[in-house]
């Protein structure tokens, strides 16, 4: 059987890859995909804790997390479409209206 630490370690590595993606990439859509990767890695950790402790609350939380992620991606991609309509780019370096 697989120790719980392995699942948590995999979750940590995937989360870190997502963080590095968000910090280094310039394409808004791929940044958004990195956020989805981070959400997924946390879901994996929740399911692992849930299975090893025998408490179903973790699986319910992941269920809600997936519902929120679906809503979030729909709104986020609509924002990216609106951004592309106004600026004709998805490069976040060129979108600096709110930058101080």
């Amino acid at each position: 059987m697989v120790p719980l630490g392995y699942y948590i370690g995999l979750s940590a590595i995937l989360f870190t890859i997502g963080v590095v993606g968000v910090l280094t990439l310039r394409n808004a859509i791929v940044i958004f995909m990195s956020v989805e990767l981070m959400l997924n890695s946390v879901n994996l950790a929740l399911i692992a804790f849930s299975a090893y402790s025998g408490n179903p609350a973790g699986e319910i939380l992941v269920f809600f997390s997936i519902a929120v992620a679906a809503a979030e991606s729909a709104v986020g991609l609509a924002i990216i479409i609106a951004l592309f309509r106004n600026k004709l780019t998805v490069n976040i370096d060129e979108v600096n209206v709110l930058k101080w």
Binding site: E36, A48, S50, A51, E59, V62, F63, I66, A69
Partner: peptide, 14 residues
């Protein structure tokens, strides 16, 4: 991890 329902949701929704 024996989470069949979440696995199916992961494939269909994500």
């Amino acid at each position: 991890l024996r989470a069949q329902f979440i696995a199916v949701i992961q494939i269909t929704v994500y």
